[in-house]
Design a protein around this nucleic acid. Structure first.
Lengths: 230, 230
DNA sequence: CACAGTCAAGAGCGGTGCTCTCGAATTTGT
DNA sequence: ACAAATTCGAGAGCACCGCTCTTGACTGTG
């Protein structure tokens, strides 16, 4: 808390944080729709209308939580992707970190990667935090390509012109110099990891891959080969 | 409508169907949380409490919609998987059918594959309809294996004993005789398709793969090779 | 024809997001 | 130092939600 703030500003910052903390706690208990402004206010010992001094609407509070969640999972994957000496290792560690975070914060994971809350539309403030995880994953691919260690096996189908364009847009922002074929497999691998996690968290694996640890590790390993990480 | 039913039974069946239809309509407009019993009743010209004669609670109505959705997407994928002469063709057509259905019924897709509705817990009645899609996909793999056309490329990591057990459980139910290595890749491919669809439907591809047609087709093609379908 | 079962309707409970007003507290400008 | 401007918490209230219970009318059957 910077000292140059007035008492009112300090109080406001603290209360804003307290509201987000309590909201996050309720989110972990009852999920996104279970998040009630009145309940948050009640728990904080204030009246519901007072909350609107800090968040103009329920959606704005949700947006704040979404941005925080994006940043949290982004930071987790980023620091994980820095560990490991080879690209393959970095990939495995980053995937494991993503899964760990997702399992520890299932409701926040659902909040950012699950079906969007009904009327909710993500504002522009979320796109930068949202890109941290894919950026970290593609960064591994990018570094591996720069190091010249990428070797892709198996046939790669022809890329359509439009797909080449789309891949170029991504490459220019996140992985300059990486060939489109390599980038395509990188994105495929990342969506695959996401699919597995969502299946596990939404309970679609109940009765089969439970626990899903081994299946996840196996898939991550095969995806590393698929992308050409070693 | 069978004729041996009494007038009361016929009216009940019709009203039940009308309620589900209107609920499905609202689901398509405002999503799962936007589904309001009062609004359904209002639209049907009755009073909200009357709805409880047909569905004991909002969750029961949702469950009915979920089962219908599982059966709808299951039927779509099943009939698609029957077309095509080669396993590779059947795979591609089935994936395309799944994507088409998902894009045409995004809210129903979110209902069954998205983050589970907060307090909602899927009852046992849903598991059989829910298994139709994975069963259809693994059926393609099974048939291809029986026909002896499966050729897998690339290294396959060692399967742990626990993962072998889990794969055996699945094989015994859905794809008897298929080796665990092949089955593992089949499940990986199916979760990948799901991950791509969820990314597309939740808008995570906005600004990059838009439209996602080409990326989807490319991934499906590469996954066919990955599984060994030809 | 009467009785048992089924039905729609209404009132009501506790909950929600959100708006508005009012008086008190605090910050700011002179 | 004091008055003006701003910010804040509290309360009442609106419209909506899921759900329960009771009441009176209707239907099918013995």
């Amino acid at each position: 808390m910077p000292a140059h703030l007035t008492a009112r500003e300090r109080a406001r910052a603290e209360l804003t944080a307290a509201i987000k903390d309590e909201a996050r706690r309720q989110l972990g208990l009852r999920g996104a729709d279970g998040l009630s402004l009145r309940a948050v206010a009640r728990e904080l010992g204030m009246v519901s209308s007072a909350l609107y001094r800090y968040f103009p609407s329920r959606d704005d509070l949700l947006t704040a939580l979404i941005i925080d969640a994006y940043n949290a999972v982004g930071a987790a994957v980023e620091t994980a992707a820095e560990r490991g000496s080879t690209p393959g290792e970095r990939w495995r560690i980053a995937c494991a970190a993503l899964r760990t975070w997702a399992r520890e914060h299932p409701h926040e994971y659902a909040l950012i990667y699950g079906s969007p809350v009904p009327g909710y539309r993500a504002p522009q403030d979320t796109v930068t935090p949202a890109s941290r995880v894919p950026t970290a994953f593609l960064g591994i691919v990018h570094d591996a390509w720069q190091a010249g260690t990428i070797e892709q096996a198996g046939p790669a189908p022809e890329l359509t012109p439009r797909l080449r364009e789309q891949l170029d847009t991504i490459a220019n922002h996140l992985a300059p110099g990486v060939p489109q074929e390599v980038l395509a497999r990188g994105v495929i691998a990342w969506t695959q990891v996401y699919g597995m996690l969502s299946f596990e968290l939404t309970g679609q694996f109940v009765g089969t891959f439970e626990p899903a640890d081994d299946f996840f590790a196996n898939a991550v390993e095969q995806l590393a080969s698929f992308v050409g990480l070693s």
